[in-house]
Write a protein that binds this DNA or RNA. Sequence first.
DNA 1: AATCAACTGTCAAGCATTTGTACAGGACAA
DNA 2: TTGTCCTGTACAAATGCTTGACAGTTGATT
Lengths: 299, 299
Amino acid sequence: MNTQGFNITAVERDTGLSKDLLRMWERRYGFPAPARDPHGERIYSGADLERLRLVKRLIDKGFRPGKLLPLAPSELETLLTESTPPRAIQAEADWEPYLACLRQGDLVSLRNALQKQLVLQGLQRFVLDTAAPLTIAVGEAWMRGNIRVHEEHAYSEILKSLLRHAIALFGNSGHPTLLLTTLPDEEHGLGLLMAEALFIIEGARCISLGTRTPLADIVDAAIRHEVDCVALSFSASFSARAGSQQIRELRERLPDEIEIWVGGGGAAALQLPPGAFSAIYPSSPSELVTAWHQRHAED
Amino acid sequence: MNTQGFNITAVERDTGLSKDLLRMWERRYGFPAPARDPHGERIYSGADLERLRLVKRLIDKGFRPGKLLPLAPSELETLLTESTPPRAIQAEADWEPYLACLRQGDLVSLRNALQKQLVLQGLQRFVLDTAAPLTIAVGEAWMRGNIRVHEEHAYSEILKSLLRHAIALFGNSGHPTLLLTTLPDEEHGLGLLMAEALFIIEGARCISLGTRTPLADIVDAAIRHEVDCVALSFSASFSARAGSQQIRELRERLPDEIEIWVGGGGAAALQLPPGAFSAIYPSSPSELVTAWHQRHAED
DNA sequence: AATCAACTGTCAAGCATTTGTACAGGACAA
DNA sequence: TTGTCCTGTACAAATGCTTGACAGTTGATT
């Protein structure tokens, strides 16, 4: 059995922080300061791991390592909860039943519970008030080691299936015509599906290419299907720099009359060229569609 | 102590306002005016963030930054609420598409359309805003000879199936415990099913006996299942005289502590004995349940 | 309708600090 | 020998700050 200790390789694997970086942090900031085995090799504690995961999460959120690493775990916790929109905080306890199902592998109950919530709330409120925050909660639970990867995957599949099912009920005609996809480096498809649901509700016609579409194919499909807009979804972990660059390139390659819409947790940080519209996920797809109709009212 | 504040990157991520823009606003309008850390880097407060989010939403709505930035948060709030027109409720008497499906015998489309509406609205609003008025519309159409009997039956079956399906998603436990049925002369089961849906949403436990239950069986089942209330559904065509008589009889045969609830289009005309509560169907099942909980709060 | 001043967002240059990664040389176990 | 880990150094990229400039918009005034 493990003696509560993790070597540097294990920590690298579990946190995604490189060995070099872990050592550098230790030298510069005094944390993490692992014990040593008889050979002088680092032995990290479970608490170290926990704290590192917190730090990682906050760095992804935009904080600088220099500020974060000297902080005590409790301070990190408060920072994390404070920096999360109040809606999600209050709800945290509400998600526990779902997470419990997930942890116990009771996928049937999980699916039933979600389906019930969908029928109870209706599609729009389900996406906004349940699916979106719950997905965030699941992500956080994973970060804290609270659930495993395959459990997160199972959750994702269930939700995708439910959403696809619900979306399929709606006719697919109307305006504007949207091409939905993610850039090649973005593999998170859940946000895309939620966006599709919200757009469909607004009466838009959606053509989804799934995730990871090469730029050339996006351009090709957009022209061939004569879409009005290309809608891209970005998760919070997507590099803002790379995203902005690719959007700029896409803007150049697309005909001027085709708009670019972006949304998702990572969309806020993007620098958008003229002719690109942003929806701070997940609140405003409906506003985007409304605004589009206003712009095209005279035609 | 916990109010560490946010650096400019975090604010950019959370608001979608570029760093450049944040700095420029500070230079030009004096807001946001974040504190500085020992190295001169900006530290934004949670309140700043909140206010910036408000400003962003208003700018997206068409206001000019110059007007917005000097305003206090409370003024921004009022501006936002005032400028947001109440969402138009579309669900007016637009039942014709459904009736058309029915007339053409296109039951698949009808079912799909209803299912879609259910997912779109959520169960409660679906029952109140779609199922109930549509059922009335179908009844009227039949009166006018606008649709045939078997078409009305088909409609009824489809709706029942949908409602049963939706109801089955919900657990059946809670308070109060209700026995749902209709009197022997009442054969309309749709209202019963709609009532069951609304009660289930309110967290009540429902035991449904279907339609046309003899009085003796109602009494028997109510006692055996230890229900709190017997809920009866009356269609508009039910004879008020006969209904009142039977309710009085039921009241005498039931134990005093078991309440009698009545609802449906024909309930308003009934003369109720003491100990019977009326819900003018279909608006008030939730009020009935709430009132019941208040009456039983001290137990 | 045309004009003009004010308003706004973006960019660049120049400088300082922070931060991730790479490299070099040594130690040790398999 | 090979692979991993150690320490220490070096460096390039990223981030932040300030100031100044500029081009596209908006809105009011001719």
